[in-house]
Simulated assay, not measured.
Amino acid sequence: MSLFDWFDNRRKLKLLTTQKYRYPKFYGNKGLWVSCDNCGNIIYIKQLKQKQRICPKCNFYLKMPSMERIACLVDKSSWISLDNHLSPVDPLQFYDKKNYKDRLLETQKRTGLKDAIQTGLATLNGYEIALGVMDFEFMGGSMGSVVGEKITRLIETATNLSLPVLLICASGGARMQEGILSLMQMAKISSALQKHQLEHSLLYIPILTSPTTGGVTASFAMLGDLILAEPKALIGFAGRRVIEQTLNEKLPKDFQTSEYLLNHGLVDLIVPRLYLKQALTEIFALYKIKNKNH
């Protein structure tokens, strides 16, 4: 063995055996400074939160924790959490690099969430709404049985109370660790939306953030009366590489961005994050949603 090989092996061994630092607090507070995923700019976390996690240098939209989204959207002290006790199980006893059950416990401890969505009732500038916010940090925002059940219950509650439904989508799609049980959530949620929208003529607005992909895109993310999206959000079903290999052709550079979808009629409006609350307020006024302040 040469000296170069020996040093290379030592380096690889160190990478494999060095314990990674685990942040004890909720992932939105990992430290005082964070770097932009796009330009690498180092940003003071307090400044970043004030700008709703938009990079002040390149205007890149960083992923936003569900609690921060809720705080930015709803009126102060109006949030009433629903079904917060629901927690996933391991029906298939799934194992990849580790047990699904262990992965769940680890993610719950790291994020402080039971699963990849928070649902509840609130007011938005006085307008009463039912709100669901997906959290990408929890297993890529994947849709398992609990995510599907919580969304369905939220829609049914909104239907009974005659409230509009808002769902902020951030997901890699259906959760593979739950197999067909995760895929069936697509039909379950769509069925609840059919009653909410068509039978009761109530408003449903999905807000697509980056990424919104897979089974979420193939179901409730694209079923809104109005479909809103953040700028330059990645939105699609299959991955770009899979589509290019299947079609055997090169796709446009902006393919699967919110701007591309808007130009092709799949999204109704692109709303910058800082103006979302005001835009929703105007939409609710247009649709004559009941307002506690009036």
Rank of each mutant, 00 (worst) to 15 (best):
Thr111Arg: 06
His264Arg: 13
Cys39Asp: 08
His196Pro: 03
Thr212Phe: 04
Val89His: 13
Tyr21Trp: 11
Ile80Arg: 08
Leu286Pro: 05
Tyr127Gln: 07
Thr111Phe: 01
Met176Pro: 08
Ser77Gln: 10
Arg241Lys: 10
Gln50Ile: 14
Thr17His: 12
Thr111Asp: 07
Pro164Met: 05
Thr152Met: 03
Cys39Trp: 05
Val146Trp: 00
Tyr204Glu: 02
Ile129Leu: 00
Lys288Arg: 12
Ile151Tyr: 05
Ser258Trp: 02
Phe60Gly: 06
Gln118Lys: 07
Leu62Gly: 10
Asn160Lys: 10
Ser201His: 12
Ser81Lys: 14
Ile45Thr: 13
Asp135Val: 07
Phe138Leu: 11
Leu183Glu: 07
Pro56Leu: 11
Asn99Gln: 12
Lys98His: 04
Met184Phe: 12
Tyr275Ile: 15
Gly179Asn: 02
Arg240Ser: 10
Leu269Met: 12
Phe237Ala: 10
Trp33Pro: 04
Leu86Val: 04
Ile117Asp: 03
Thr157Ala: 06
Ser78Phe: 06
Lys292Pro: 10
Arg153Val: 08
Gly179Val: 04
Glu199His: 04
Ile283Thr: 06
Gly144Lys: 01
Thr217Pro: 01
Pro164Thr: 00
Leu247Gly: 03
Lys63Met: 10
Phe94Met: 06
Asp225Phe: 08
Asp268Ser: 06
Leu113Phe: 03
Ala192Val: 05
Gln50Asp: 08
Asn84Val: 12
Tyr204Asn: 01
Leu113Asn: 03
Ile42Gly: 13
Gly31Glu: 05
